[in-house]
Amino acid sequence: MKSMLIATTALFGSTLSAFAEGQLNLFNWGNYTSPELIEKFTEETGITVTITDYDSNTTALAKVEAGGSGFDLVVPSANYVPVFVGKGLLAELDHSRLSNIGNIAQEWVDVAWDPGRKFTIPWQWGTTGVAVNTSVYGGDVNTSDIFLDPPAELVGKVNVVPEMNDVMALAIFNAGGEACTEDLEVLKKVRDKLMAAKPSWIAMDYGTTDKLSSNDLVATVNWNGSTMRARLNNPDVVYGYPVEGYPLWMDSVGLLADAQNVDEAYKFLDFIMVPENAAMISSFARYANGIAGSEEFMPQEMKEAPEIVIPEEFVSAGKFLPTCPQSATELYTAIWTELVK
């Protein structure tokens, strides 16, 4: 009934309700925001949070760039943060209003995409690797050859998530290149590798958690948190860290330049930097956050999960993806388009 009321007020008096005192509009990936976190925030501050979902960085960017939708906070991936900043869509943060800014773990402060955290606060970070069902393939899983040159058992069974940046990075690392390379020789190798591998893929699809759990997929390029969720359902699933190199990613919260509820937004940003609260974000979506001291508030199963805690020997293979120059992006898009069509 209450939601009916809310919807009706939204219909007739939305300008009033959307920008009223004590409101906050968070624009975030779907199924990514812990409901308990929001509940706690509302209890502590009296601010009502409205969450609106998006399903890709590009949609979020297009909508924010067009403007007028009334969002206050957005959660772009690392390589999109400079794009948002470059287009003037994010407001520079006033650190004096963020008493918990010191809680950001040291390694997440001077990040390439936002040096000194001038624009964004860490939300969650993770890795992109491969997930394999060991009952089907018992060999080495710590290689991107799982999808680029699949072993016989996996031919015709591999799924690849349709994320251009992640997949291109894995393939470039596999071919011995650097992230954002514009070296045509490397890229040609990348293209040929991908094109040769495509016939042994079964799909390029999301929804890997469920399908790994139910054995509908036995191998896929996947994110670590999703693989952990699948493993909890299906113990045969393991996560592989490709030794050739694999991408690290982080989604960070930024304050939009045209935000209406700036005070509330600052309160929220400060709130999520409290270790206990950051741990709530992580326990919900199963990815690590960037807040020092949050580990102790996390559930036991996450503290020792091999998907979340990167094993020592694979740490060095993880590389952050910088925002590539437009010229490199154009090359990658061309290869990607050729691949997916």
Binding site: N159, A203, M204, D205, G207, T333, T337, V340, K341
Partner: peptide, 25 residues
């Protein structure tokens, strides 16, 4: 096509969507 076709082979709708999305064109 996206959910049931698995995204490996596109239809024109997906191809157009790609240009507005990851294709950035």
């Amino acid at each position: 096509p996206r959910v049931l076709g698995g995204g490996k082979n596109m239809m024109i709708g997906n191809f157009i969507e790609l240009q507005f999305g990851q294709g950035q064109n």
